[in-house]
Amino acid sequence: MELIQTPTAQTTAATDLLLGLLSLFFSYSIYKMKAKDKGKATIWAAAFLLLSIGALVGSVRAGFVLSDATKFALNQPFYLSLALTVALFVIGLFYDLTNGHITKTHVLSILGIGAFFYILTVIFSGMFFIFLGYAAVAMLLALFAYSVFAVSGKVKGASMVASGILLTLTAFAIQASKAISFHLIWDFDHNGTFHLVQILGTTCIFIGISISLQKTDNTKTIA
Rank of each mutant, 00 (worst) to 15 (best):
A115Y: 12
A115W: 10
A115V: 13
F116R: 07
F116P: 03
F117P: 02
F117I: 09
F117E: 03
Y118G: 09
Y118T: 12
L120I: 15
V122P: 03
V122A: 10
I123S: 07
G126K: 14
M127V: 15
M127E: 15
F128L: 13
F129D: 11
F129W: 14
I130G: 09
F131T: 07
F131Q: 07
F131R: 02
Y134C: 05
A135Y: 05
A136R: 01
A136W: 08
A138H: 05
A138T: 06
M139H: 08
L140Q: 12
L141V: 10
L141R: 01
A142N: 04
A142P: 00
F144M: 07
F144H: 11
F144N: 10
A145D: 04
A145Q: 06
A145K: 06
S147T: 15
S147P: 10
V148N: 12
A150F: 04
V151A: 14
S152R: 12
S152C: 07
S152D: 10
K154Y: 02
K154H: 02
V155C: 08
V155T: 11
K156W: 02
K156Y: 02
K156L: 02
G157L: 04
G157M: 07
S159N: 11
V161P: 04
A162E: 01
S163A: 15
S163P: 01
S163R: 12
T168M: 10
T168L: 12
A171P: 01
A171G: 05
F172H: 12
F172M: 11
F172V: 09
F172D: 05
F172P: 00
A173I: 10
I174G: 00
I174A: 02
Q175F: 13
Q175K: 12
A176L: 13
A176W: 07
S177R: 09
S177K: 09
A179S: 15
A179V: 11
A179N: 13
A179K: 12
A179I: 14
A179C: 06
